[in-house]
Amino acid sequence: MAVAQWVKTLTFYEILVGMKATITVLIQRIILRNRKAITLQYPHEKRELPGTYRGMIALLRYDDGTDKCVGCDLCESACPSRVITVISSEVEGEPMKRYAKEYYMDMTRCLFCGLCVQACPVDALAMTTEYEWAKYNKRDLRLNKEQLLALGDRNFPVREKKLEFQHPNVAYFNIGHKNLPPKES
């Protein structure tokens, strides 16, 4: 046993085994041609993305074109890398209705972890499959609300109905008081 070990050491047996492995691959690739590279020639070929791919984050709208976002800031607090800045405000003319007056995502810092999407109570955020967002100026990656909504429009052509039409029992969740039935007396 020990002798065999010695022989193996002296003849660099393990190294030779390793070298055999690498040369085998080479031979299969170049001479036998029964092996293919796993490389994807990226700009020419593109990978099929899984449905759960986490790409750029988008803001969504309801079917009537209004923002889903209620400006609740939960995404901001869920975000581990402080990507999101929400400046919320009251909707003009609809007292107590909250919305995001401004919404920024600094995608230079985004980890694409999707915690914001999970945190959103109204499903206003979604992850798209877009990923080709290289820019010459990194400030261009601080997306504002319009850009994020445009992303959503581009990637999610089918929009949801407004919340009050989906669930009558939460009808007064952030819809202001304009359309509510009068108080029973």
């Binding site: 690498t22 691959v25 080479l26 690739r29 092996r35 796993i38 490389t39 020639q41």
Partner: peptide, 13 residues
Amino acid sequence: KVLSWMQDRMGPM
């Protein structure tokens, strides 16, 4: 090239 062939890659293309 040789490295990439041995490592299932393509190398410069």
